[in-house]
Design a protein around this nucleic acid. Structure first.
Lengths: 181, 181
DNA sequence: CAAATACGTCAACAATGCTGCCGCAACGGC
DNA sequence: GCCGTTGCGGCAGCATTGTTGACGTATTTG
């Protein structure tokens, strides 16, 4: 694999330092830092979500079901609208997933007390058990990563991730911290 | 459009502090830390990838095309096999995406010199330009997050993300660092 | 009562993943 | 030079998960 630029496999720019780049050294480093972060997000997210796939496949469920279980578990009694706002998918995409979860007895629904049009969603005992199994798989990966990296790194991780998401998501997470004493 | 933040958005949960949790304080904290990380990964990944979607939509391309452009750009002269190994999708999924990129003149192919069966992939001038537009959108988000969080946090972020991905992905990234002095 | 809201549902479609199978050109060992 | 393996292309078909748009129904609210 000869790529014209000399470097093997990794092309862009080592032997050919983009002569016209102003302030080259620093700018190039910053750009490459960002590109590394793109890779980090792609690989980490992929491998993290993959961790639960074995269990999901056995049950004929998908990641969408896992996400629903996760956010219902974290917000028992949540309404469909609020869940839609968190997941940012359409009503139909969610309905498809929810109907399966309800059929299988993983999610329970209760009419709203204030507003009886609402369906308040929560996990059944089975739902909680499944969510826990899925959670445990992902936890393995995360605790390993946390342990290796150390507490300070974890704090940095959290800060950067928080910064990447948009304001709405940040607000949700702030609410979550607040509401979970 | 119902924006669905009318009610608390946080469900009923917090009034019921799981009384039977053994060793409650510490265990619960650790578990909740992991659950927060699940949220972080979901929201950050979603909003980060969304950043490029406007441009992609205009061109009728998807995220899969973006990923291909990204990894070809980072590895000019890469073979189809190597690209498959990075993306971990099937040949057919990649072929579908690649054929579009080649048709539109965004990706160029050259027969391998060692092994003429190979197609060595690289970005054309147009491909580089598009990749850069997409990159710039994501860069905005990341640099903002990096700036807010600070250099130490960024280092922690990298360490944790590296720990989450699997060995193969880590090895790829190490190769990348190594080859980019 | 009328309008707005929360939700369900149907039909159709798109993007991206998958499997399995076949074919061809090129490489490499014998 | 032959033959097995490899790198790649292509077809057919299918699953998951997302989308839009429209319509129905129960319920709340002005």
């Amino acid at each position: 694999m000869q790529d014209g630029r000399g470097a093997s496999m990794r092309g862009a720019g080592s032997a050919d330092p983009k002569p016209a780049q102003a302030g080259a050294g620093l700018l190039f480093l910053r750009e490459d830092e960002i590109r590394v972060a793109q890779d980090l997000l792609f690989f980490a997210y992929r491998d993290f979500t993959n961790a639960a796939d074995v269990i999901l496949d056995e049950l004929g469920l998908g990641r969408a079901h896992h996400r629903a279980l996760h956010y219902i578990g974290r917000n028992p009694g949540i309404t469909v609208s609020d869940l839609l706002a968190i997941l940012r998918i359409t009503k139909q995409s969610l309905a498809r997933v929810l109907s399966v979860l309800v059929e299988r007895g993983l999610v329970a629904q209760a009419p709203g007390t204030d507003d009886r049009r609402q369906r308040l969603l929560s996990l059944t005992t089975d739902g909680k058990a499944l969510e826990r199994r899925l959670f445990d798989r992902q936890r393995e990966r995360l605790t390993a990563a946390y342990r290796e990296a150390g507490a300070a790194a974890v704090d940095g991780f959290r800060r950067v991730m928080r910064g990447i998401m948009d304001n709405t998501a940040r607000a949700y997470m702030d609410g979550a911290e607040q509401a979970r004493p």
